[in-house]
Design a binder for these strands. Structure first.
Length: 728
DNA sequence: GCGTGGTCAATACCT
DNA sequence: ACAGGTATTGACCACGCG
């Protein structure tokens, strides 16, 4: 049996360098040939085909020719020439193409515990105590921490000299070569650690010799889409190794969880339970104290660095297995798996079949906009005896039930692939419960979770115009059937005498006193109207529900409260309003006897005498653009100003794209019609020179009462509250 | 010059 | 470079009023 690959790199000469695991847990290198290939939609002029083989492919797809080259040099010379005449599709990176061509996968017979992982963290200092800057000659790397298999190795700067720093950088490269990890992990290591080390290496004309096969690191600007925003970062590739940034993994995780106020290592580590809530036993050093600790309290400095390494490992322990399992499923490398979306991965699986079947590939289709899921709020106010039902894996189930492959999939592999993945998932879901050892159960759990994500993205793939086998009509058919199904369910629940509360896409909430104790009996009564392969699940039971608006509600179960919707749990919301809403909901749901109106009155008093801390008033927003991009778009594109961006401009150094900016509003001066003119960063709060505007924040309390007062049986406050503060 | 009402884009959510 | 749907907010603009 072929050995397991845990490192792969295709050289410029077109040799595939492989690192394979030995039975004893070691690593061996070997090389194999690589015959690169690409699909063409037409035959380029014959003169260009020297040294290449061209095949005609079966089926009606637009890319009906396949070209192979004997070596990469020939191929890379051919590509630009061919592109001038015909359309060319080549799978990149070459390592993915190699894996696909050989139907190989990385880490095939390895568990997550057997892969060699190394955590990296550096500490840096600055001459003047400001934030360390690699471009300043006197700012330096003080220490480089490595941790592999739970063992730390700290490399320390031996003197405040260039020679000593050079030696430190050389020791790092040597230590990495000796430890020879498959994966290099760090928190924000793309934007900070690796970038900093690169700049210092360049300064001393040292190579960044951190890869396998004697190779150097390769840097290039890259961007990652995190929900609605793009994050720019200097990507770093190490031949034969994967570079994994837990800072990005944390943000990817929080897209669905949405529970982290900050993505910094220290805060996240507490959230993930890697460090106790009371932070006992963890050494902390503020940024500006690091250099002093390095000089005067070396033990403390080292303890701090070791805690950073330990927390980084803990984060990757929890967040990386999903991606590790993807790599065992898709012809891709780990680093790609963390940085690329679902389209790339599904395309790779599809194209693997097309390549081996010698079937012509389609052009990605145009996808017209189509309707999505059915959403409706039936009630407003507070309800008791609440039951939640949802359809298990609605869209994948509907896709399988429709059973139609996308229009461009002439080989018919999409639906069988989805079915296979679903069956695998069910198998691993079972194993996650029943496997004999905890390690096997954890691995099965990671596999099933990774398959679930993947299976759910098949529908989205169909509706995406960049997907090679996309099919908007099929995606529209899926959502249409989903809407019909949910509405039929709602009608049936209503017929059973339930009070419908809220419905969204594949699930619904209702109130029913008689069935509250027998949710499965009710489920059985309505399940009859479902098609045979669609399963309805009873997903939860709640004492009370506060229905506000579509996709906005709160649930109480015992003393636990769950909030849903941007109106009730937006992270940017002013803390004082947030607390008021929390109080309101706890009160309405019967969890707490304290009326929010008492808190409201207290806020009014404390605004009047300005004793409410500004931090409670500040709103925060993620910076979607760099301050420069904002300026440019405003000047050239006529985009409106934004208070958050105006606040960001006042900060030095300016916050980076993707960071959160908190700001407050100062009192209105004549001619300041807009908020953005009086926005100030919270970090620059000056109670004397730039106090907050109590009238503005009191008016927000009026708005709040206007919105929620009716749920408390209170009439909206009289207007003119702001006058209290006139002339103050 | 100031408030009002309507439109639009941006953000942050939900499934 | 998976999808569509909803709530909320603030900037901006036209408008009426004085």
């Amino acid at each position: 049996m072929a050995p397991t690959i845990c490192g792969l790199w295709v050289s410029g000469e077109g040799r595939a360098h492989l690192t394979v695991a030995t039975a004893a847990g070691g690593r061996e290198e070997r090389t194999e040939g690589f015959r690169p290939f690409a699909w063409l939609n037409d035959t380029p002029p014959a003169a260009n085909l020297h040294g290449l083989t061209l095949e005609r492919l079966a089926g009606p797809g637009a890319f009906d020719r396949l070209v192979h080259a004997e070596d990469l040099a020939t191929f890379e010379a051919f590509l630009p020439v061919a592109r001038a005449a015909v359309a060319v599709e080549a799978i990149r990176p070459w390592e993915s193409q190699f894996l696909l061509q050989h139907r190989q996968r990385l880490y095939r017979d390895l568990g997550f515990g057997q892969v060699r992982r190394c955590q990296l963290d550096i500490e840096t200092g600055s001459e003047d105590g400001s934030f360390s800057d690699a471009s300043r000659p006197g700012d330096r790397v003080l220490a480089i921490g490595l941790r592999q298999g739970g063992t730390n190795r700290l490399l320390l700067l031996e003197a405040m000299t260039d020679a000593a720093e050079q030696h430190l950088l050389e020791s790092f490269a040597a230590a990495l070569q000796a430890a020879d990890p498959d994966i290099l992990e760090g928190h924000n290591l793309f934007k900070f650690d690796l970038d900093y080390l690169r700049q210092r290496c360049r300064r001393y004309k040292l190579p960044c010799a951190w890869g396998r096969y004697g190779q150097r690191a390769a840097f290039r600007p890259s961007r990652l889409k995190l929900a609605e925003r793009w994050v720019d970062f200097p990507r770093c590739d190490l031949p034969g190794r994967a570079v994994v940034d837990t800072y990005l993994l944390v943000q990817l995780h929080d897209l669905t969880a949405r529970e982290l106020p900050s993505y910094g290592l220290k805060e996240v580590a507490v959230h993930f339970g890697l460090t106790a809530e009371d932070r006992a036993g963890r050494t902390y050093l503020e940024g500006h104290r690091i250099q002093a600790a390095f000089t005067h309290d070396r033990a403390r400095f080292c303890a701090y660095l070791e805690d950073d390494l330990r927390e980084t490992q803990g984060l990757a322990d929890q967040l990386l297995p999903t991606y590790f399992e993807q790599v065992r499923t898709f012809p891709t490398q780990l680093q790609e798996a963390t940085l690329r979306g679902a389209t790339t991965k599904i395309d790779l699986l599809m194209l693997e079949e097309y390549y081996h079947a010698r079937q012509a590939c389609p052009l990605p289709p145009e996808v017209a906009p189509f309707d999505g899921g059915y959403t409706r709020s039936f009630q407003e106010g507070v309800f008791r005896h609440v039951l939640h039902y949802d359809v298990a894996s609605l869209y994948p189930s509907l896709l399988l039930s429709i059973g139609r492959n996308p229009a461009g999939d002439t080989l018919g592999v999409f639906i069988p692939l989805l079915r296979r993945l679903r069956d695998y998932r069910l198998q691993y879901k079972q194993l996650a419960r029943t496997a004999p050892t905890a390690e096997e159960r954890a691995e099965a759990q990671a596999r099933q979770a990774s398959f679930k994500l993947l299976i759910n993205s098949f529908y989205g793939y169909l509706g995406f115009s960049g997907a090679r086998f996309g099919d908007g009509a099929l995606a529209a058919e899926v959502t249409r059937r989903g809407r019909d199904l949910l509405q039929a369910l709602l009608a049936e629940f209503a017929r059973q005498g339930c009070t419908l509360l809220e419905a969204d896409t594949d699930g619904l909430y209702l109130s029913s006193e008689p069935y509250f104790a027998q949710p499965d009996e009710l489920r059985a009564r309505v399940a009859g109207i479902l098609p045979p392969d669609i399963e309805l699940e009873h997903d939860g039971r709640y004492d009370a529900m506060f229905c506000y608006k579509m996709k906005n509600y709160a649930l109480a179960s015992g003393r636990q409260v769950i909030l849903r919707g941007s109106a009730l749990r937006s992270r940017g919301m002013e803390p004082y309003l947030r607390r008021l809403s929390d109080r309101l909901i706890a009160f309405l749901l019967g969890v707490s006897p304290e009326s929010p109106l008492d808190l409201l009155a207290e806020y009014r008093r404390r605004l009047a005498d300005r004793s409410l801390p500004v931090a409670d008033l500040a709103k925060s927003e993620l910076l979607n653009q760099t301050p420069e991009a904002y300026e440019r778009l405003r000047a050239e594109g006529g985009k409106p100003r934004r208070a958050s961006a105006e606040a960001a401009r006042q900060l030095t150094p300016p916050p980076r794209q993707g960071e959160r900016v908190s700001y407050y509003l100062t009192a209105k001066a004549p001619g300041q019609a807009s908020d953005w003119q009086r926005a100030r960063p919270l970090a620059l709060y000056d109670a004397a020179a730039a106090p907050y505007d109590p009238a503005y924040y009191a008016a927000k309390l009026d708005d709040w009462l206007e919105r929620y007062g009716r749920f408390l049986g209170v009439a909206p406050a009289a207007t003119g509250q702001g006058e209290l503060f006139d002339g103050a």
